[in-house]
């Protein structure tokens, strides 16, 4: 039954170079370059090899950015990831100190993370009326509480034998292994989000959960998977963090969740769900890391760096709003 009006509807996507450059990600590429030139200008030691050497301790947070982007696009939030990192790192160090083989230590680390994520996912999918912010606030406190009990009165644990971890912290030439893992994960997560039915379902749930559900999207299954994977990534972050710090304490992973959210939002991923691309989050992640390294090299006060990052974040949220208003005004005129 062809439409009786014979109307045809175009289905060829429009492509324009202007749009590609002017999108948020295009701006971030420019910003990334500008920040690097700026850092190179203020710090003589801001050179490729040095930046790569300092990168690992910041890169651990990137592991959390990827799943956090998924959760934000779902229209939800997970603020327990920092605590999951702390718990996983604590158990990892303790397992290693018990003399377990390194393979088993890695397993303990990843499984602890998976367990944390799975618990979040289970609560949130069983009791769907609970807000993720509150549930993960609760589990954050619980995970940290368990870690603190395990850490005991000293509040910290050091690796007695760091051989395995030194290998993880190694380099291929001047490039640290962790950078390869981050890039691999970045590609993997970006492709899943942009190209697969799973990724499209995530956007659908974040844009209109009811419509997605009525369209046969397995909403709860997808949420459970994403929260569990988030836990896995927290475990991975804990593994690499331990390989940099050779230990864990009660403040390990503090604020990681907020840094991951900040990177994602700065990358154009909306906290209200359904919007943004992971590429933006990755770009903003690297931009923030480079700025931190550059400012750190000139011995800028760390608190001042935080203030600068905070201001950048608020501007990132403001700019699209302002430009949208300007466009409206232009249209009205």
């Amino acid at each position: 039954m062809a439409g009786k009006s014979g109307r045809t509807i175009a289905n060829v996507p429009e492509k324009s170079l202007k749009k590609t450059v002017l999108c948020w990600e295009g701006m971030l590429v420019i910003l990334f370059i500008v920040i690097n030139l700026f850092c190179g200008g203020i710090s003589p030691s801001y050179q490729f090899a040095n930046v790569l050497r300092e990168m690992p301790k910041y890169l651990t947070e990137m592991f959390l950015l990827f799943p956090m982007a998924f959760i934000l696009i779902l229209g939800e939030i997970d603020i327990s990831v920092g605590a999951s990192v702390c718990l996983a790192a604590t158990f990892t160090c303790m397992a290693s100190n018990q003399g377990l083989p390194f393979g088993a230590v890695i397993l303990v680390c990843l499984l602890t993370g998976v367990a944390c994520g799975f618990i979040n996912g289970l609560i949130l999918t069983r009791f769907q009326e609970l807000p993720p912010m509150i549930v993960t606030l609760g589990t954050q406190i619980v995970f940290r509480g368990i870690a603190e009990i395990a850490l005991g009165s000293g509040g910290s644990v050091s690796l007695s034998n760091a051989d395995g971890f030194r290998k993880i912290a190694g380099k291929a030439g001047i490039v640290p292994y962790i950078l390869f893992v981050v890039i691999l994960m970045a590609v993997l997560y970006s492709v899943v989000l942009a190209k697969t039915t799973f990724g499209r379902s995530v956007y659908a749930i974040g844009s209109n959960r009811m419509a997605a559900y009525y369209s046969g999207i397995p909403v709860q299954k997808i949420r459970l998977i994403i929260y569990t994977v988030t836990g896995f990534m927290a475990g991975l972050a804990a593994l690499f963090l331990t390989s940099v710090l050779y230990g864990a304490n009660t403040t390990t992973g503090n604020g990681f969740e907020m840094d991951a959210i900040a990177m994602a939002v700065f990358g154009g991923i909306s906290t209200s769900g359904g919007k943004g691309r992971l590429f933006g989050g990755i770009l903003s992640g690297f931009t923030i890391i480079c700025l931190r390294i550059g400012l750190g090299q000139i011995n800028m006060n760390p608190q001042l760096i935080l203030i600068i990052l905070g201001i950048l974040l608020i501007s990132a949220v403001l700019i699209p709003n302002i430009s949208a208003k300007l466009k409206l005004k232009k249209k009205a005129a």
Binding site: A2, G3, K4, R7, T8, I9, A10, N11, E14
Partner: peptide, 16 residues
């Protein structure tokens, strides 16, 4: 989607 939208005679310019 083009085919289905035309089948129900949707008043739209493009599928986007």
């Amino acid at each position: 989607s083009k085919q289905l939208l035309e089948e129900v005679d949707t008043k739209a310019v493009t599928i986007f």
